[in-house]
Design a protein around this nucleic acid. Structure first.
Lengths: 229, 229
DNA sequence: ATGTAAGGATCGTTCAACAATCCTTCAAGA
DNA sequence: TCTTGAAGGATTGTTGAACGATCCTTACAT
């Protein structure tokens, strides 16, 4: 029986229930990442708590969670606000992304085990572009980079990457025209994936670094105009 | 007057007050990292709340914070426990540390701006060892690696590193004899710092990678005996 | 050894209350 | 006109109590 038991252990996480606070946090997280609550929006305890029909205490627990994920900022006695990222935040996010993503592919000498997820993300992006679904293109792009970070094989890197991309989404919603921002990188995603699929780590790293540098420059340029702080 | 005002703005962070939940979290965090609450300890809401004289709601906010920092684990309807790291956690922590710390020194070609903090950490470690203060040796060692990660110049990397080392402290408290674990690395710290101070990034990276590999092996070996899960 | 049932302990969540702080408004003074 | 000061209301910070839900333990029966 020991074999069956150890096999079952993998499913333990599936039946993980969640508290109300976590579910509330989930709701708010998706709302924020979808742009329903734009950066700078104040989330009053009364209003949100009333709308979701949860008590203030439970809501405050959810706020703490999202604050720790850097999606909200908490100002004492003033409440919580949807985070407004500065230009320095954007450059720092890309600094860490370069560090993580480049390291994930640098040492590759053969097609890695997580290659399928990378390829499927590329494919999803191409399909989204061909059907002019720019929203899906953006999420496919995010999935692509998450898959690349996952090549590192580290749960902590995965979570870090998830957080970084969630932060970046805050920036995207401040900017207009997601098409102009995501579409040009479709080709490069494919090239990077090709290099990975043949096990050419150094080449993939170089292209990734250039990709991220370009994306950062474009984002910082557009962001600096709107947010001259 | 604008000059004086902008000068004052830098001090704004100094008067940053904090809520009781955060102060409670601070207290618990230091208690945990000092080993007062060993891994596996259950932190009952009644007991802790009574001892610190804060309400359950406030205490739960503090618990959420520490849970998100991975110092506590939260099991629904069972309470919070001081985290017990698995061997996989240890290897993952070192995987990320290699990724971060090596990248922080790899591209160096000249003495970096944060060099002074690296050197002072090395010096603190040597002094602690010469006065047989093994506790101080451990903290100096941590400061050394924090200073190295800080060379990346990224606030997010700094925070990530802080979290990783806080997790590692949980492992140290399960193990005995901190001297045997920290002392052998004193020399290597000095050599790595020397390479950094002359701007030899690649050499520093190589030594760091070897250092971290050795430390991981030793830790995993000793940890696996105690925690055969 | 396995299963069931009762009881107590603890957590999850809500509600109500009050103090502390912030924001707004408005009037007084330079 | 601009600044300062003083109410007043609105919101957050924190507490305490309450009740249902869940878990753990114990005892008992199969």
């Amino acid at each position: 029986m020991t074999a069956e038991v150890s096999g079952l252990a993998a499913d333990r996480a599936l039946l993980g229930r969640s508290s109300t606070a976590e579910r509330v946090a989930d709701v708010l997280r998706t709302r924020i990442s979808e742009g329903y609550f734009p950066p700078g929006t104040r989330l009053a305890e009364d209003a949100i708590g009333g709308a979701l029909a949860v008590s203030r205490n439970t809501l405050r627990e959810a706020f703490r969670l999202l604050t720790h994920e850097r999606l909200l900022t908490h100002e004492l006695n003033r409440g919580v606000f949807v985070r407004v990222l500065s230009v320095e935040d954007v450059t720092d996010i890309y600094r860490v992304r370069r560090l993580i993503e480049c390291a994930a592919v640098r040492d590759l000498t053969a097609p890695p085990s997580g290659l399928d997820r990378v390829m499927s993300a590329v494919k999803a992006g191409e399909e989204a572009a061909s059907s002019s679904d720019w929203l899906a293109l953006g999420t496919a792009n995010i999935r692509f980079h998450q898959a690349i970070a996952a090549l590192a094989g580290s749960p902590r890197v995965d979570e870090l990457m998830r957080g970084l991309l969630a932060e970046l989404r805050l920036v995207f919603h401040v900017m207009s025209d997601p098409r102009r921002f995501h579409e040009p990188y479709l080709l490069r995603n494919g090239e990077i994936a090709a290099a990975i699929s043949v096990g050419d780590g150094p080449r993939a790293e170089g292209m990734l670094a250039a990709y991220l540098k370009d994306a950062e420059d474009q984002l910082v340029g557009a962001y600096g105009e709107l947010n001259p702080a």
